[in-house]
């Protein structure tokens, strides 16, 4: 008997870190000093807050640099930091620091934004809730996914793997270890959440599970 998959969902409260930046220099300082939770919030969690915006201006740093500093090329480079390409929050932080550092290095004059337009470093007090239902086969897994909120997808695809330093996401791990569905697990693991919005991502996953169910039924 396969170990059941327990669905969770994530929500939370945003907290100010008391760090803010009014220029690229102070942004760089903040990037070095703030907690990993704050980097996670601005890089990863932005997906949950503005998920319909797809990858364009996806992380908060890129968006601030574009909207308030009008530095389009830096914004473009910051947008290209792929959260799924980073094994840890530390790696994402290092990439961001390198990009901003290099840009500050080549520029001659950088503006300060006016009061009220600063970048505020925030972090999240995440709260994770267990959902009522669980899955013990592919059929009930599909049903669970269909009823799940976007917070569930964020938790199992992003929060849990990064927090626990896992190689893969919760869905793929369970499909592979408990159901021996290695191909399906691999297909889901290869989906990069940051090039979709969360609805699209949900639809992509559902479509793959549905297709597999169909194959199982016909064979």
């Amino acid at each position: 008997m396969a170990e059941p998959f327990r669905f969770f969902t994530e929500t939370g409260l945003t907290i100010h870190t008391n760090f803010k930046a009014d220029s690229l220099k102070s942004l760089l300082y903040g990037l070095k000093k703030v907690s990993g939770s704050s980097i996670f919030y601005h890089v990863h969690h932005a997906l949950l807050r503005r998920h319909f915006a797809t990858s364009d201006q996806m992380n908060d740093f890129a968006r601030w640099v574009l909207v308030h500093l009008s530095q389009a090329s830096l914004a473009e480079r910051l947008s290209a930091v792929d959260p799924m390409g980073c094994k840890s929050v530390r790696e994402a932080r290092e990439q961001l620091i390198d990009i901003v550092k290099e840009y500050v290095g080549i520029g001659e004059l950088f503006f300060r934004v006016s009061e009220g337009s600063e970048f505020h470093f925030l972090q999240m007090h995440s709260m994770v809730l267990p959902l009522k239902y669980k899955a013990d086969d592919l059929e009930s897994f599909y049903k669970g996914l269909r009823n799940a909120s976007l917070g569930t997808f964020f938790y199992h695809l992003i929060e849990a793997p990064i927090r626990l330093g896992k190689q893969s996401n919760d869905f793929s791990e369970w499909l592979s270890h408990s159901l021996n569905e290695d191909d399906l697990a691999d297909e889901i693991a290869r989906l990069n959440p940051y090039v979709y919005n969360l609805w699209e991502l949900k639809a992509e996953i559902l479509q793959r599970v549905r297709r597999r169910l169909k194959t199982l039924h016909t064979s």
């Binding site: 972090q123 007090h125 709260m127």
Partner: peptide, 18 residues
């Protein structure tokens, strides 16, 4: 509701609720 929950979960970064 989450703010009310913080009473039981002060100083935590991630809280697992019932």
């Amino acid at each position: 509701l989450l703010l009310l929950e913080t009473k039981q979960h002060q100083n935590e970064k991630i809280s697992f609720l019932k």
